[in-house]
Design a protein around this nucleic acid. Structure first.
Length: 239
DNA sequence: GCCAACGTTGGC
DNA sequence: GCCAACGTTGGC
């Protein structure tokens, strides 16, 4: 599979019954609100198909609209069947990525807007995109009065806790690799966490995913009973 | 289509 | 709490 990170992000799909003027549609298309009318569903337009994701959520209490938006990985873990819906996404690009997700896809659960931001664990998609009911709920933190039930704007998926990462991977460490890989052409060179820092649902290349979880090329040395292990430990991410 | 004003995200 | 980056709105 050829992977072009984020090449056509935001272009993807929504069924639009928007009968507005041409310029308005153009404007909306730029924002990702309008579906490509010839979208065949097979991404023949050249858009990249992803299967690994990073999803941000806030593990510390914060009030929005009078509601606490806290939802860390421990909160997901505590839900029945360790499964919950990923609601509240209110950005078109992020929503479009949600809509690309398939059952069994894996994602990093990323803790944002907290003391130590970073990757806390692994989750998997257990239900594909459907209407996010919270957009119609006046009492919800992410109520969207502009969205109508007959033409909902926002989607969500269901995710299930898979496991914690073997250790928490702080943003600072990911950034270190990102900067290095920008020069060396390594797998984290285009990581959206840095190139599109505000995107709350974002794709990862398979290489970036693997690197974060299994470490770099010298990962195996760390497990050898020889002293050289520590020499290479700095080149490894081990989620 | 451009762009100024405004709002939100999220690291620090 | 600050503020840079960037997404959204809406006039023209």
């Amino acid at each position: 599979m050829t992977v072009t990170l984020l090449g056509t992000a935001g272009k993807a799909p929504e069924t639009s019954s928007d009968g507005g003027v041409a310029r308005d549609v153009t404007r909306k298309r730029k924002r990702g609100e309008v579906e490509d009318q010839n979208n065949t569903g097979d991404r023949s337009s050249g858009a990249t198909i992803y299967s690994h994701w990073l999803m941000k959520s806030e593990p510390e209490s914060r009030t929005e609209n009078g509601v606490d938006v806290k939802f860390g990985i421990e909160d997901l873990k505590a839900l029945p069947n360790q499964t919950g819906c990923w609601d509240g996404v209110r950005n078109y690009q992020a929503r479009n990525f949600l809509r690309e997700m398939k059952v069994a896809h894996q994602a990093f659960f990323y803790h944002s807007n907290c003391k130590t931001p970073g990757i806390a664990g692994l989750i998997k998609i257990v239900k594909e995109a459907y209407v996010d009911h919270t957009q119609f709920d006046k009492k919800d933190a992410h109520y969207d009065p502009s969205s109508k039930p007959e033409n909902p704007k926002w989607s969500m998926v269901d995710v299930k806790f898979e496991r914690m990462t073997r250790r928490f991977i702080p943003l600072s460490e990911l950034k270190k690799y990102h900067l290095k890989h920008k020069n060396t052409g390594g797998p984290l060179r285009n990581m959206a966490l840095f190139t599109r820092s505000r995107l709350s649902v974002q794709p990862l290349t398979p290489a970036a995913w693997t690197r974060c979880i299994k470490g770099g090329p010298f990962h195996w040395r760390v497990e050898l009973p020889f002293a050289c292990g520590s020499v290479f430990s700095g080149a490894v991410l081990l989620g």
